[in-house]
Design a protein around this nucleic acid. Sequence first.
DNA 1: CCAATCGGTTTGCTATGGAAACCTATTGGC
DNA 2: GCCAATAGGTTTCCATAGCAAACCGATTGG
Lengths: 118, 118
Amino acid sequence: MTGSVDTPAPDETEAPHPATGLDDVVHQRIRLGILTIAHEARRVEFGFLRTQLELTAGNLSKHLGVLETAGLVQIEKGYAGRRGRTWISLTAAGDAALAEEITRLKQLIARVDTTNGQ
Amino acid sequence: MTGSVDTPAPDETEAPHPATGLDDVVHQRIRLGILTIAHEARRVEFGFLRTQLELTAGNLSKHLGVLETAGLVQIEKGYAGRRGRTWISLTAAGDAALAEEITRLKQLIARVDTTNGQ
DNA sequence: CCAATCGGTTTGCTATGGAAACCTATTGGC
DNA sequence: GCCAATAGGTTTCCATAGCAAACCGATTGG
């Protein structure tokens, strides 16, 4: 037992860095893209997300799974003509999570910008 | 060979989503925090980053390694009194990469905000 | 001089991200 | 009507990333 305790200080001055509060489920590049696009429209097609974000179908499918499991999006399967089609929409939780992420990012950007001379 | 080709459309209308251009090395939560803090001061101590970002030393060490390998930060080892100490500072490339990230994030935030009723 | 602390690096496990393979319709040629 | 090709996704599998624990060398305190 000669090692350090190796845990961060509990932080008494209370003012965690904005990056600390980011949720990895939301912050991840592709998922942030999905949430953003889903926020713009009420419902989005799987294929639309795929082309907009330049993803393989498999990759998109995985990320949607993560978001659905986290309760941030709702997946609906139906038909467009006779072809099967999948639509994605934000849940209330998803909307809130995106808002939270945006808030943190704004804080972070503000800190960078104020030390920029601009 | 009955499967789909499984690659995204080349995108003719040319206007990739902001999330598409984010660099994972920079965008990652902790590394974004490191770059942001390093941007505020000219040089930062390892221990300062550790407490601000609430990380274990091992975790921080790894992420610094990634950033250094990418050429985004410079690591300097020296002494504070007789204790060894490590300082981190942004390189020009690091500063540029952070600026790029911030630009993308602003675009992304703008899209979310304009569809917010606010 | 021995134990504990500081300041960090390396090791090792787990989970995530991504492409390729696969699967089930549907549509188009002949 | 039958076979090949395409649409639209899901599942499998591998490589890497992220994280904590173990470790390591100096320094300081009792």
